[in-house]
Write a protein that binds this DNA or RNA. Structure first.
Length: 445
RNA sequence: UCCCUGAUAGCUCAGCUGGUAGAGCGGGUGACUGUUAAUCACCAUGUCCCUGGUUCGAGUCCAGGUCAGGGAGCCA
């Protein structure tokens, strides 16, 4: 047994009980260290929370209550002591998550972050497995990009220029020809446009990789660096997209329910009582599908007082989404066909010429969890929308090519991986769903 | 970025209307016990976030700043 000490309890019967954890499961293993060990006094009795050990012995049925098995140690090798136990930050007690964020290098040694890490891994594996089983190809879209995708938010600049001596052109403007890529480049805010090209060749594809947003938004739902999943399917419409989203989420949640019972039990005890029932209800229910226009009607007729009155043409507020999901329907809802003005240029124009084939999947207890759309595959209509939104077609030539050469109806959606982790684990803050959170003013570790 | 709240021991916090600091947990020491975040006793611990101001005197009041949390906007 190789791992780190969680607690040590001594018995004057000539024994010490070591709770040793190696992160492979939620529970620690109890190692019984007898005082007859040669290093008992100067080794075992010096062990405190956080020390690393290698214990050798026999796994036997436990003679005490509280665990089924334990190790009767014949050897306890102390690898690393804790310098000063008085200041070791991770104590065998409940810490606040805020405090643990300040010790991000040691928080994986806590019950909470061990459980989150294993669950995060389980979710990631389930996602890849789901797509793989369905015949999807994982496509790694570029992290450095020259396009600003859909104009979705602020981007991080990527440059090797000397900030203290920037090259200028005749007009005094920055000369990016001198930069590494010979043009302005940024970290990606979405792999969607790139993955569409692969979709229109491999039929079923997805991205799963890091994504960056430089917006100065400091909330429990935002990270500057996060992981995003974006499936894209060819020969598909919005209904197929919604069905994929439903199958996808249910598959992932089922996997967590099956594989991480130990960690889920802990989340229920310490973080969110409703974690397991919420996931069970989610996988057991069929999603309601509802048009945006209908949703506005429902909200208007609800008699509910909203801070912002629901109005056709405006985006749904968080309070609106919560009412729809939690009060009106009571299970996951897919809201479809939004007004074109509030949605991105690449979303497919509907026959009514006022809405586009966009969808949001709303889940009880969190709100929007997935956003997607059928893409505009008709070049003339795509150009029309780009013009309307004042996008420069020159920047999207290769994207327009996809509509010129063998275009087909296709659709996809995107979801933030950490938001999924937050939902599954019952967390409050997205900064606890990723090992080293990056946020405005926060790039420690 | 805006609004609100907060920052006191290693951690979680208390400290009333201004009079230079306390508890629980953790740590150390000892006792006790096949123990379970053990129990009991004793011991130690502080730039009261920073800078300035008011005052005889500031953890406490005022101003500015930094950081954090909650909410909003934006979004994944």
């Amino acid at each position: 047994m190789r791992g780190w000490i969680r607690t040590r309890r001594d018995s004057k019967a000539g024994l010490s009980f070591l709770a040793v954890n190696d992160g492979s499961a939620f529970d620690s293993l109890q190692v019984v260290a007898p005082s007859s060990l040669p290093n008992y006094a100067d080794g075992v009795l010096k062990l405190s929370t956080g020390c690393s050990v290698i214990c050798t012995g026999q796994l036997v049925q436990s003679q005490g209550k509280g665990q089924s098995v334990e190790v009767q140690a014949t050897k306890v090798e102390v690898l690393g002591l804790v310098d000063n136990p008085d200041t070791y930050p991770v104590q065998p007690k409940q810490h606040t998550l805020e405090f643990l964020r300040e010790v991000a290098h040691l928080r994986p040694r806590t019950n909470t972050f061990g459980a989150i890490s294993r669950t995060r891994h389980c979710i990631a594996q389930a996602i890849h497995r789901f797509f793989h089983e369905q015949g999807f190809v994982w496509v790694n879209t570029p992290i450095i990009t020259a396009s600003d995708a859909e104009g979705a938010g602020q981007m991080f600049r990527v440059s090797t220029l000397d900030l203290s001596n920037l090259p200028r052109d005749d007009k005094g403007k920055l000369d990016f020809h001198k930069d590494f890529f010979g043009k302005e480049t940024f970290l990606t805010v979405s792999g969607q446009l790139n993955v569409e090209a692969y979709c229109l060749a491999l039929s079923k594809v997805y991205t799963f990789g890091p994504t960056f947003r430089a917006e100065n938004s400091n909330t429990a739902r935002h990270l500057a660096e996060f992981w995003m999943i974006e499936p894209e399917i060819a020969f598909a419409d919005l209904a197929a997209d919604a069905q994929l989203a439903e199958d996808f989420l249910k598959y992932v949640f089922k996997a967590v329910l099956n594989e991480r019972q130990d960690d889920l039990k802990f989340f229920v005890e310490r973080h969110d009582k409703s974690v397991v029932t919420r996931l069970e209800q989610f996988v057991g229910s069929s999603f309601e599908r509802i048009d945006y226009t209908k949703a506005i009607e429902i909200l208007e007729k609800s008699g509910q007082k909203f801070e912002y009155a629901p109005k056709w043409g405006a985006d749904l507020q968080t309070e609106h989404e919560r009412y729809l999901v939690e009060k009106h329907v009571g299970r996951p809802v897919v809201v479809m066909n939004y007004p074109e003005a509030i949605k991105a240029f690449y979303m497919r124009m509907n026959e009514d010429e006022r809405t586009v084939a966009a969808m949001d999947v709303l889940a009880p207890g969190i709100g929007e969890i997935i956003g997607g759309s059928q893409r505009e595959e008709r070049l003339d209509l795509l150009d029309k929308r780009m013009a309307k939104m004042k996008l420069n077609p020159d920047h999207y030539q290769w994207y327009r090519d996809l509509r010129r050469y063998g275009t087909v109806p296709h659709a996809g959606f995107g979801l933030g991986f950490e938001r999924l982790v937050v939902y599954v684990c019952g967390l409050q803050n997205i900064r606890d769903a990723i090992p080293y959170p990056r946020a405005p003013g926060q790039a420690e570790f």
